[in-house]
Design a protein around this nucleic acid. Sequence first.
DNA 1: GGGTTGTCGATTGTTGACGATCGACGATTG
DNA 2: CAATCGTCGATCGTCAACAATCGACAACCC
Lengths: 230, 230
Amino acid sequence: MPSADTPLRALKLVQSNSLPMLVQKEIERMILAGEIAIGEWLNESALSQRFSISRGPVREAFRSLEESGLVRQEKNRGVFVREVSVEEADQIYDLREALDELIGKQVTACATPDQIKVLHALMEEMDNVARADDVSPYYALNLRFHDRLAEFTGNRKLVTIYRRLINELHLFRLRGLSQFGGLRKSTDEHRAMVKAIESKKIEAAGRMFKAHVVASRRRMDKAFGRDKTS
Amino acid sequence: MPSADTPLRALKLVQSNSLPMLVQKEIERMILAGEIAIGEWLNESALSQRFSISRGPVREAFRSLEESGLVRQEKNRGVFVREVSVEEADQIYDLREALDELIGKQVTACATPDQIKVLHALMEEMDNVARADDVSPYYALNLRFHDRLAEFTGNRKLVTIYRRLINELHLFRLRGLSQFGGLRKSTDEHRAMVKAIESKKIEAAGRMFKAHVVASRRRMDKAFGRDKTS
DNA sequence: GGGTTGTCGATTGTTGACGATCGACGATTG
DNA sequence: CAATCGTCGATCGTCAACAATCGACAACCC
């Protein structure tokens, strides 16, 4: 949390963040936090008034958000929070399988002891909330866990793409509000993944990561009451 | 080439394309065609005057272009065509390996005879220009070939991501204008890829596609005079 | 003369206003 | 009474003007 208490920090903040960027981040936060419902219409002037700015920066933020897949724009109608269909979620999972496999391999190849410590710490936290079957914080921690893994590859483009996909999947999950459980199994898989990283077996880690996504997709399918026997 | 000769087409065109979108596409074209140099500064008002519109739509187009990775924005300074570093190109190739492997597998799993025909046609064209060592048209055909393959997966998100990566790689290539040859080897690999698709061997196709990216990266490294012995 | 500081033109950031378009509501007609 | 058409309010698309910021050049001081 970057607090702007000192003038120095405030200066850097003002220099780096433009109005449209700030608006973009705030709207993104609102969408991901569920403050704006899926499919809901985003009123340009209402938002600009809410932020006490004009419509220009809001429109620019909309363009960024559209490109990153969070909203959809209809000409002369406005922008809406995107609704991710089942088919699309499926396609995203296909991508995640490939990307997570890559993440597993790359992290195994280049992870530092410090980074592995971070992973262990996150796993411990997740263990705690999983024991209490506390889905909401578990979900957040899970996101952080996978995000860190993506970061540890050192591949910034990968991180960007990965985050966008996760965001869109989040959009899909928000439709059915069930957080589909399987917390214990998930933690077991995480443990196996980190173990694979520590053992420096690149290919094995890749398979492990991919398997985790596959299992994760299965859990989701189950929660949404559809079987993928094919 | 979508000609707007009939009023019906023009209507659809006007309805779907907004000014910012048009500008975005045009600037994207200019960048990829090399009409604007790498690192070059994009003058907001100059562009708006050139298109006979105001600065608003241009600014919105900039936001989209930034999010898609073609330009970089510096606050109070303007936007510049992004310069893709060697490190970044490397990272993109890592991603391409994973994505192309996925593409190979998925296309093999679901390609229709018609689609395979399209691939054959493209390969034949490439053969012709390769025989003449005509790099420029070969390059364009190669892009189309891979783009079609991505499309044939039916995974729209994959297509979007793939195209962005290809665009950024193109940005990198534009730095050193050498189109790094190896045309014959490239066509051989393409033939092997399509053969794998036709034989319906999913895993083999995946490996073949990945290998093509690896070889392609090697050729680039060579052309840029750096060895990857590590 | 080297370095610093003030000033200026150019460009970006932001705004408020105007015209165009859309969806909804109510009037009209068969 | 139902279906269609016209009108109206709300919202989007676009624009032109204003304010803030930057880089460069020149004047100034030591």
